[in-house]
Amino acid sequence: MEHVIEIEGLTKDYEKGFLKKKKIRALEGLDLKVEPGQIFGFLGGNGAGKTTTIKILMGLIFPTGGSAKILGADISDVKIHSRIGYCPENPYFYDYLKANELMDYFGRLFGLETAKRKAVTEELLTKVGLEEKDWNRQLRKFSKGMLQRVGIAQSLVNDPELVVLDEPMSGLDPVGRREIRELIAGLRQSGKTVFMSSHILSDIEALCDNVAILRGGKLVATGRLDELLASEGGERTFEVNANGVKAIDLIGIPGSIRGAVVTEKPSGASIQVAGDEHLSTVLAEIKKAGGNVVSVQPVRQSLEELFVKETSGS
Protein backbone atom coordinates (compact mmCIF):
# COMPACT_ATOMS: atom_id res chain seq x y z
CA MET A 1 0.00 0.00 0.00
CA GLU A 2 1.36 3.39 -0.99
CA HIS A 3 1.67 5.76 1.93
CA VAL A 4 0.11 9.18 1.64
CA ILE A 5 2.95 10.70 3.63
CA GLU A 6 6.33 9.01 3.94
CA ILE A 7 9.00 10.76 5.99
CA GLU A 8 12.51 9.37 6.47
CA GLY A 9 15.15 10.84 8.75
CA LEU A 10 13.79 14.37 8.42
CA THR A 11 16.02 16.87 10.19
CA LYS A 12 15.81 20.65 10.36
CA ASP A 13 18.31 23.07 11.87
CA TYR A 14 17.50 26.76 12.19
CA GLU A 15 20.43 29.12 11.94
CA LYS A 16 20.57 31.89 14.51
CA GLY A 17 22.65 34.97 15.13
CA PHE A 18 24.04 37.65 12.83
CA LEU A 19 26.58 35.32 11.24
CA LYS A 20 24.14 32.40 11.36
CA LYS A 21 26.74 30.24 13.03
CA LYS A 22 24.54 29.09 15.89
CA LYS A 23 22.23 26.25 15.02
CA ILE A 24 19.09 25.12 16.75
CA ARG A 25 17.80 21.66 15.91
CA ALA A 26 14.03 21.82 15.52
CA LEU A 27 13.58 18.34 14.10
CA GLU A 28 15.80 15.31 14.42
CA GLY A 29 15.62 12.21 12.26
CA LEU A 30 11.85 12.02 12.03
CA ASP A 31 10.47 8.83 10.48
CA LEU A 32 6.76 8.72 9.86
CA LYS A 33 4.28 6.99 7.58
CA VAL A 34 0.66 7.93 7.11
CA GLU A 35 -1.69 5.48 5.48
CA PRO A 36 -4.51 6.54 3.19
CA GLY A 37 -8.06 7.11 4.40
CA GLN A 38 -7.23 7.85 8.01
CA ILE A 39 -7.12 10.84 10.29
CA PHE A 40 -3.61 11.12 11.63
CA GLY A 41 -3.02 13.19 14.76
CA PHE A 42 0.29 14.98 15.16
CA LEU A 43 0.94 15.88 18.78
CA GLY A 44 3.58 17.61 20.79
CA GLY A 45 4.16 20.54 23.09
CA ASN A 46 5.18 24.00 21.99
CA GLY A 47 8.42 23.85 20.00
CA ALA A 48 8.21 20.08 19.55
CA GLY A 49 8.60 20.37 15.78
CA LYS A 50 5.02 19.88 14.55
CA THR A 51 4.71 23.09 12.56
CA THR A 52 8.29 22.71 11.30
CA THR A 53 7.38 19.28 9.92
CA ILE A 54 4.22 20.60 8.27
CA LYS A 55 6.09 23.57 6.77
CA ILE A 56 8.68 21.21 5.28
CA LEU A 57 5.93 19.02 3.83
CA MET A 58 4.33 22.10 2.26
CA GLY A 59 7.64 23.29 0.78
CA LEU A 60 7.70 26.48 2.86
CA ILE A 61 11.04 25.63 4.46
CA PHE A 62 13.71 23.20 3.39
CA PRO A 63 14.99 20.25 5.44
CA THR A 64 18.61 20.09 6.59
CA GLY A 65 18.55 16.33 6.14
CA GLY A 66 16.30 13.41 5.31
CA SER A 67 13.53 13.17 2.79
CA ALA A 68 9.77 13.21 2.54
CA LYS A 69 7.21 12.12 -0.01
CA ILE A 70 3.58 13.04 -0.37
CA LEU A 71 1.33 10.82 -2.47
CA GLY A 72 4.45 9.18 -3.85
CA ALA A 73 6.08 12.41 -5.05
CA ASP A 74 9.02 14.22 -3.52
CA ILE A 75 7.97 17.30 -1.55
CA SER A 76 10.02 19.53 -3.86
CA ASP A 77 7.56 18.78 -6.68
CA VAL A 78 4.98 21.59 -6.45
CA LYS A 79 2.68 19.80 -8.93
CA ILE A 80 1.72 17.43 -6.14
CA HIS A 81 0.11 20.40 -4.36
CA SER A 82 -2.81 20.11 -6.77
CA ARG A 83 -3.81 17.02 -4.76
CA ILE A 84 -3.24 18.56 -1.32
CA GLY A 85 -5.19 20.97 0.86
CA TYR A 86 -3.52 22.93 3.64
CA CYS A 87 -4.76 25.20 6.40
CA PRO A 88 -1.96 26.80 8.44
CA GLU A 89 -2.15 27.62 12.13
CA ASN A 90 -3.91 30.97 12.69
CA PRO A 91 -4.40 31.44 8.96
CA TYR A 92 -3.88 34.93 7.62
CA PHE A 93 -5.22 35.81 4.24
CA TYR A 94 -5.27 38.88 2.02
CA ASP A 95 -7.49 40.98 4.25
CA TYR A 96 -8.54 43.29 1.42
CA LEU A 97 -10.31 40.34 -0.24
CA LYS A 98 -13.82 39.19 0.53
CA ALA A 99 -14.36 35.58 1.57
CA ASN A 100 -15.81 34.62 -1.81
CA GLU A 101 -13.03 36.49 -3.66
CA LEU A 102 -10.38 34.58 -1.72
CA MET A 103 -12.03 31.27 -2.60
CA ASP A 104 -12.27 32.37 -6.23
CA TYR A 105 -8.59 33.40 -6.28
CA PHE A 106 -7.44 30.07 -4.87
CA GLY A 107 -9.77 28.26 -7.28
CA ARG A 108 -8.00 30.08 -10.14
CA LEU A 109 -4.63 28.89 -8.83
CA PHE A 110 -5.94 25.33 -9.14
CA GLY A 111 -7.16 26.05 -12.67
CA LEU A 112 -10.86 25.66 -11.89
CA GLU A 113 -13.34 27.11 -14.42
CA THR A 114 -15.52 30.09 -13.45
CA ALA A 115 -18.73 28.10 -12.89
CA LYS A 116 -16.89 25.44 -10.88
CA ARG A 117 -15.20 28.10 -8.72
CA LYS A 118 -18.55 29.70 -7.93
CA ALA A 119 -20.17 26.37 -7.08
CA VAL A 120 -17.25 25.21 -4.91
CA THR A 121 -17.14 28.56 -3.08
CA GLU A 122 -20.81 28.38 -2.17
CA GLU A 123 -20.61 24.72 -1.20
CA LEU A 124 -17.55 25.04 1.01
CA LEU A 125 -18.42 28.32 2.74
CA THR A 126 -21.78 26.76 3.63
CA LYS A 127 -20.08 23.55 4.76
CA VAL A 128 -17.78 25.35 7.22
CA GLY A 129 -20.73 27.22 8.67
CA LEU A 130 -19.97 30.72 7.37
CA GLU A 131 -23.21 32.65 7.06
CA GLU A 132 -24.13 33.83 3.56
CA LYS A 133 -24.18 37.49 4.62
CA ASP A 134 -20.45 37.18 5.44
CA TRP A 135 -19.38 35.78 2.08
CA ASN A 136 -19.23 39.25 0.58
CA ARG A 137 -17.40 40.90 3.48
CA GLN A 138 -13.72 41.76 3.52
CA LEU A 139 -11.63 39.36 5.60
CA ARG A 140 -10.19 42.25 7.64
CA LYS A 141 -13.62 42.43 9.33
CA PHE A 142 -13.62 38.73 10.26
CA SER A 143 -13.13 37.29 13.75
CA LYS A 144 -10.45 34.68 14.40
CA GLY A 145 -13.02 31.90 14.35
CA MET A 146 -14.48 33.08 11.03
CA LEU A 147 -10.98 33.21 9.51
CA GLN A 148 -10.40 29.66 10.74
CA ARG A 149 -13.55 28.54 8.93
CA VAL A 150 -12.43 30.27 5.73
CA GLY A 151 -9.03 28.63 6.20
CA ILE A 152 -10.57 25.19 6.30
CA ALA A 153 -12.87 25.98 3.36
CA GLN A 154 -9.95 27.12 1.17
CA SER A 155 -8.03 23.95 2.01
CA LEU A 156 -10.79 21.96 0.30
CA VAL A 157 -11.16 24.07 -2.88
CA ASN A 158 -9.39 21.49 -5.05
CA ASP A 159 -11.17 18.45 -3.55
CA PRO A 160 -7.80 17.20 -2.23
CA GLU A 161 -6.79 13.62 -1.47
CA LEU A 162 -4.75 14.77 1.53
CA VAL A 163 -5.77 17.59 3.86
CA VAL A 164 -3.10 18.99 6.19
CA LEU A 165 -4.54 20.98 9.07
CA ASP A 166 -2.32 22.81 11.56
CA GLU A 167 -4.34 23.44 14.73
CA PRO A 168 -7.70 23.46 12.91
CA MET A 169 -9.74 24.08 16.08
CA SER A 170 -7.77 27.16 17.08
CA GLY A 171 -9.97 30.18 17.73
CA LEU A 172 -13.25 28.28 17.44
CA ASP A 173 -15.97 28.31 20.07
CA PRO A 174 -17.37 24.96 21.33
CA VAL A 175 -20.12 24.92 18.69
CA GLY A 176 -17.62 25.76 15.96
CA ARG A 177 -15.26 23.07 17.19
CA ARG A 178 -18.02 20.51 17.04
CA GLU A 179 -18.98 21.55 13.51
CA ILE A 180 -15.39 21.39 12.27
CA ARG A 181 -14.88 18.07 14.06
CA GLU A 182 -17.86 16.67 12.18
CA LEU A 183 -16.52 18.14 8.95
CA ILE A 184 -13.13 16.47 9.49
CA ALA A 185 -14.81 13.16 10.30
CA GLY A 186 -16.80 13.60 7.07
CA LEU A 187 -13.55 14.00 5.12
CA ARG A 188 -12.45 10.55 6.26
CA GLN A 189 -15.83 9.12 5.25
CA SER A 190 -15.36 10.55 1.78
CA GLY A 191 -12.04 8.72 1.50
CA LYS A 192 -9.67 11.59 2.15
CA THR A 193 -6.64 11.41 4.40
CA VAL A 194 -6.33 14.06 7.10
CA PHE A 195 -3.05 14.95 8.77
CA MET A 196 -3.74 17.29 11.66
CA SER A 197 -1.89 18.80 14.56
CA SER A 198 -3.83 19.96 17.56
CA HIS A 199 -3.39 20.91 21.18
CA ILE A 200 -6.97 19.97 21.88
CA LEU A 201 -6.52 16.36 22.93
CA SER A 202 -10.21 15.58 23.20
CA ASP A 203 -10.55 16.37 19.48
CA ILE A 204 -7.59 14.17 18.62
CA GLU A 205 -9.01 11.37 20.78
CA ALA A 206 -12.42 11.71 19.16
CA LEU A 207 -11.17 11.89 15.57
CA CYS A 208 -7.82 10.23 15.03
CA ASP A 209 -7.06 6.66 14.01
CA ASN A 210 -3.31 7.00 14.42
CA VAL A 211 -1.16 9.51 16.23
CA ALA A 212 2.47 10.52 16.48
CA ILE A 213 3.87 12.36 19.47
CA LEU A 214 6.91 14.60 19.17
CA ARG A 215 9.16 15.86 21.95
CA GLY A 216 12.07 18.20 21.33
CA GLY A 217 12.05 17.49 17.62
CA LYS A 218 12.11 13.71 18.07
CA LEU A 219 9.39 11.14 17.61
CA VAL A 220 8.61 9.56 20.99
CA ALA A 221 5.51 7.52 20.18
CA THR A 222 3.48 6.56 17.15
CA GLY A 223 0.82 4.01 16.33
CA ARG A 224 -2.86 3.31 16.55
CA LEU A 225 -4.41 5.51 19.19
CA ASP A 226 -6.30 2.71 20.95
CA GLU A 227 -3.16 0.56 21.12
CA LEU A 228 -1.08 3.40 22.51
CA LEU A 229 -3.68 4.13 25.15
CA ALA A 230 -3.93 0.46 26.14
CA SER A 231 -0.22 -0.28 26.28
CA GLU A 232 0.60 1.59 29.48
CA GLY A 233 3.05 -0.44 31.59
CA GLY A 234 2.73 -3.54 29.43
CA GLU A 235 -0.07 -5.03 31.58
CA ARG A 236 -3.75 -4.28 31.74
CA THR A 237 -5.28 -2.37 34.63
CA PHE A 238 -8.78 -3.24 35.84
CA GLU A 239 -11.35 -1.31 37.80
CA VAL A 240 -13.61 -3.48 39.96
CA ASN A 241 -16.76 -1.85 41.35
CA ALA A 242 -18.59 -3.48 44.25
CA ASN A 243 -21.56 -2.58 46.43
CA GLY A 244 -22.59 -3.78 49.86
CA VAL A 245 -19.07 -3.30 51.10
CA LYS A 246 -17.00 -0.41 52.41
CA ALA A 247 -13.47 0.52 51.47
CA ILE A 248 -12.33 -0.12 55.03
CA ASP A 249 -13.50 -3.76 54.72
CA LEU A 250 -11.12 -4.23 51.77
CA ILE A 251 -8.06 -2.77 53.46
CA GLY A 252 -6.25 -6.09 53.02
CA ILE A 253 -6.13 -5.75 49.23
CA PRO A 254 -3.49 -2.97 49.00
CA GLY A 255 -1.51 -4.89 51.62
CA SER A 256 -1.34 -8.07 49.57
CA ILE A 257 -1.32 -6.61 46.03
CA ARG A 258 1.31 -4.02 45.25
CA GLY A 259 -0.09 -0.90 43.59
CA ALA A 260 -3.75 -1.74 44.18
CA VAL A 261 -5.92 1.24 45.12
CA VAL A 262 -9.22 1.06 47.01
CA THR A 263 -11.59 4.04 46.83
CA GLU A 264 -14.78 4.66 48.80
CA LYS A 265 -17.86 5.13 46.61
CA PRO A 266 -21.40 6.17 47.68
CA SER A 267 -22.77 2.70 47.01
CA GLY A 268 -19.69 0.69 47.91
CA ALA A 269 -16.08 0.66 46.82
CA SER A 270 -13.93 0.73 43.74
CA ILE A 271 -10.64 -1.15 43.38
CA GLN A 272 -8.00 -0.53 40.72
CA VAL A 273 -5.50 -3.33 40.21
CA ALA A 274 -2.86 -3.98 37.56
CA GLY A 275 -2.38 -7.48 36.14
CA ASP A 276 -4.84 -10.23 35.24
CA GLU A 277 -3.40 -12.57 37.90
CA HIS A 278 -4.53 -10.31 40.77
CA LEU A 279 -8.10 -10.04 39.56
CA SER A 280 -9.25 -13.33 41.17
CA THR A 281 -7.73 -12.27 44.52
CA VAL A 282 -9.67 -9.01 44.45
CA LEU A 283 -12.92 -10.76 43.57
CA ALA A 284 -12.39 -13.26 46.43
CA GLU A 285 -11.71 -10.45 48.93
CA ILE A 286 -14.92 -8.65 47.94
CA LYS A 287 -16.91 -11.89 48.39
CA LYS A 288 -15.23 -12.53 51.76
CA ALA A 289 -16.20 -9.03 52.94
CA GLY A 290 -19.85 -9.67 51.95
CA GLY A 291 -19.92 -7.40 48.92
CA ASN A 292 -21.33 -7.92 45.41
CA VAL A 293 -19.27 -7.31 42.28
CA VAL A 294 -21.13 -4.83 40.05
CA SER A 295 -18.60 -4.43 37.23
CA VAL A 296 -15.09 -5.34 36.13
CA GLN A 297 -13.65 -3.20 33.34
CA PRO A 298 -10.24 -2.58 31.84
CA VAL A 299 -8.89 0.92 32.47
CA ARG A 300 -7.50 2.91 29.53
CA GLN A 301 -5.19 5.78 30.19
CA SER A 302 -6.48 9.00 28.68
CA LEU A 303 -4.74 10.67 25.78
CA GLU A 304 -3.92 13.49 28.12
CA GLU A 305 -2.05 11.11 30.43
CA LEU A 306 -0.22 9.59 27.49
CA PHE A 307 0.59 13.04 26.10
CA VAL A 308 1.90 14.34 29.42
CA LYS A 309 3.94 11.19 29.95
CA GLU A 310 5.50 11.26 26.49
CA THR A 311 6.06 14.98 26.21
CA SER A 312 7.51 15.39 29.70
CA GLY A 313 9.76 12.38 29.33
CA SER A 314 8.70 10.93 32.69
Binding site: G59, V78, K79, G85, P88, L109, Q154
Partner: peptide, 14 residues
Protein backbone atom coordinates in the same frame (compact mmCIF):
# COMPACT_ATOMS: atom_id res chain seq x y z
CA UNK B 1 5.68 38.75 7.30
CA UNK B 2 1.91 38.29 7.18
CA UNK B 3 2.25 34.62 6.24
CA UNK B 4 -0.11 34.94 3.29
CA UNK B 5 2.50 32.97 1.34
CA UNK B 6 1.77 29.86 3.39
CA UNK B 7 -1.53 29.26 1.65
CA UNK B 8 -0.23 30.44 -1.74
CA UNK B 9 2.68 28.01 -1.80
CA UNK B 10 0.51 25.13 -0.65
CA UNK B 11 -1.13 25.50 -4.07
CA UNK B 12 0.63 24.26 -7.22
CA UNK B 13 2.52 27.55 -7.59
CA UNK B 14 6.25 27.79 -8.22
Amino acid sequence: EKRTLYTIFSKPIG
